[in-house]
């Protein structure tokens, strides 16, 4: 009974009126851009290529990550900032369970939002009749895995750091943007690399390549990551990060900053 209340209240907090509008805009943004790309391409329009570009850069590269950062860190940092954490931590609910329920609410929120956005893009580009030609089924399977991995990581950050949102954004749009494009094995320390292995998207070849892309195409710099390994890394990382977050939350003190007097 208490689990349901915690889960529901977390979902409600994540969907407060201000946030709900932002989320709705984020859901519609990739579809709107896909529509614009379709109109601009005219007779050269190839839905697979546009879908690949939008899914890779906007849905996987932006929407998934930003929603995971905001919701993953928000489940805890919002309670601390609002000082409502006090009410939760003085109730007879084990802390690990409290955080797990909040994580599940955030995971559901991110998954539904990114999957809805992905589906809208596919519908915009392929139409209802040709939807089977899009790799939508595969993406709808991999996006929750990404939400799980990033969600667990950002919840862990929220249990450990004072300003998790700031560090989360730095990680998401610094590390996760650059590291997958680096040559050699270094790119293996990015979650996005494994997501791209599981959900590769055919992207339009630009007329000129930037140095990072050139570097990744040099002979000897490509290392093939098997699918199974990508699955193992993403699931293993998610479980490990989540367990570490639950443990940290169970043993650390969480008192609102100005309440330490």
């Amino acid at each position: 009974m208490s689990d349901l209340y915690i889960f529901r209240n977390t979902l409600r907090e994540l969907n407060r009126p201000g946030r709900l509008w932002v989320n709705l805009l984020l859901v519609l943004l990739p579809a709107a851009l896909a529509l614009a790309a379709r109109a601009a391409a005219g007779s050269r329009f190839r839905p697979e290529t546009v879908y690949g570009n939008v899914a890779s850069s906007l849905i996987f590269g932006f929407l998934l990550v930003i929603l995971a950062v905001v919701n993953g860190t928000g489940v805890l940092s919002q309670e601390i900032e609002q000082k409502t954490i006090t009410y939760l931590l003085t109730r007879p609910v084990p802390r690990w369970r409290l955080l797990l329920l909040k994580f599940l609410a955030a995971f559901l929120m991110v998954t539904v939002t990114v999957c809805a956005s992905c589906l809208l893009v596919a519908l915009t580009l392929f139409g209802v009749g040709r939807l089977s030609g899009a790799p939508i089924g595969r993406d709808l399977l991999i996006l929750p895995v990404g939400a799980l991995a990033y969600g667990a990581l950002f919840v862990l950050m929220a249990t450990l750091l004072q300003r998790p949102l700031m560090y989360g954004l730095l990680f998401a749009f610094g590390w996760e943007s650059w590291v997958p494009n680096l040559p050699g094995y270094f790119r293996r320390v990015s979650l996005m690399t494994y997501l791209r292995v599981l959900a590769p998207h055919s992207r339009e070849e630009p007329e000129t390549l930037d140095i990072a892309q050139v570097a990744t195409t040099l002979p000897g710099t490509q290392d093939g990551i098997p699918h199974q390994m990508a699955w193992n890394v993403l699931i293993g990382f998610s479980v490990l990060a989540l367990m570490l977050a639950l443990y940290t939350f169970s043993v650390r003190e969480y008192v609102p900053r100005d309440e330490t007097g």
Binding site: I6, N9, E13, R91
Partner: peptide
């Protein structure tokens, strides 16, 4: 500070449920 979007009754009900 509290859950501003909850009603007083929802707030007390949630915490009562959390108390078992």
């Amino acid at each position: 500070n509290s859950y501003e979007d909850l009603t007083g009754r929802e707030f007390v009900t949630m915490l009562a449920a959390m108390a078992g």
